[in-house]
Write a protein that binds this DNA or RNA. Sequence first.
DNA 1: GTTTATGCAAAGGTTTTGCAAGTGG
DNA 2: CCACTTGCAAAACCTTTGCATAAAC
Lengths: 146, 146
Amino acid sequence: MSHYTWDYEEIIRAAGHRVTPQRVLILDAVCDSGGHTTLGDIYARVREVDRTIDRSTLYRTLKLFVELGLVVSADTGDGETYYEIAKSHRHHHLVCRQCRAEQEIAHTLLEGMCDHIYRAHGFRVETDHLVLFGICQQCQQDQETL
Amino acid sequence: MSHYTWDYEEIIRAAGHRVTPQRVLILDAVCDSGGHTTLGDIYARVREVDRTIDRSTLYRTLKLFVELGLVVSADTGDGETYYEIAKSHRHHHLVCRQCRAEQEIAHTLLEGMCDHIYRAHGFRVETDHLVLFGICQQCQQDQETL
DNA sequence: GTTTATGCAAAGGTTTTGCAAGTGG
DNA sequence: CCACTTGCAAAACCTTTGCATAAAC
């Protein structure tokens, strides 16, 4: 899951923007974090490499990356925005309220719902990165055995 | 859509909290606003009755009401938290990315998806107030006619 | 060289918190 | 009465913005 597989520099330049060390560093950080991360986490990562990088740069850069489609953002509904490297397949996340574990799920599982909503309300759901909260299998089993 | 139908005072007291004029006023305001409202809106409403009520009281009270299940909160991703009186039926919201219009949808539309997820991953989705982003019917039509 | 991006600092906004005074049960 | 609540003020956040400097192209 590396951004090295696509020519991100070309994408940035094609949109009339410049490839700076900071931008490369930030894209690296989002990549290295694996799943989805918060801005605070990305900040900590880039800070380990470059002590002078500023939060405002991070905000501006992430906003740009989302616009360019290099990064997808997800609003969890709990106040924090999550960021993740754009992948080829649309997917979403399940986050367990108890153990905080997260897993990825295919977009296929949501397609039925999107259809239902479109048929009922004419509304085209475009959430490309949904985060659903609930209780994971493991925590359910742990509760039953109590 | 009135809170007078349930014994909210009993719920508050049962949890070891007190029924103050401010709390009653705030619950009234959330109710009167009909659908979902922002804290600023609630603040304006309660201020019309009581000029001395403070924002911090409002924050504390709404937080309490959410804990008690009297009010549900949702983060629409635009920086403000929305509040709404808890209703008997679970429901969710659609937010248009273009015109920012919001509409309510029945939980029924999500049940199929929840089942799919449970069957595929054993994960029990418990999001009781989901906010889905996309493009509403009106904005789709406006785009087509351009 | 131009134009864009950065870092800094400061501002704007929402939400939280410490504390003395007030009030519900 | 006593513990919980309130209002006030201040602080803690998160995010954005203006501007001079620095860097990319």
